[in-house]
Amino acid sequence: MLSTETIDEVLIIRVEERRLDASKAPAFKDDVGQIIDEKANRLVLDLTLVEFIDSSGLGVIVSVLKRLGPSGNLAIAGANSTVRRLFSLTRMDRIFKLYDSPQAAVEAMQT
C-alpha cells in the first residue's frame, strides 16, 4: 500500500493505491502512523498514483498532519485534478502545500 524513500532527510511516502477511500483509510492511517513514529517529521505524501480520494481519505490525511504536531511539515505531491479539486473545495490547499512532484516538494522544503 505504501513505499518510502528518503531524499535529503525528507521522507517521501508513496501511496500505491488508485483509490484512497473508506475501505483503505484505516489501514493507511495505521501504516503512516507507524512511519511517522519511527522516522523524521519532514514528510512528503506522494499521491501520483492516486486517482480518487473520498471524505474518509481526506480525514486520515488531516489526521496525519495532526499527528505530526506543530513542528511537523507535511507536503502533498503529485495530486491530480480530482484530488486537487477536493483539497480546494475543503480549503485543505490552505493547510497543506501542494507540489507537482515529490522532487519539487523536497526542493521547496530545503529552502
Binding site: S55, L58, G59, V62, S88, L89, T90, R91, I95
Partner: peptide
C-alpha cells in the same frame, strides 16, 4: 460559493 472548511476537522477554522 467555491470552498470552505469541513466541520469537525480543524477547530480554529
Amino acid at each position: 460559493g467555491s470552498s470552505g472548511f469541513p466541520v469537525g476537522m480543524l477547530p480554529q477554522a
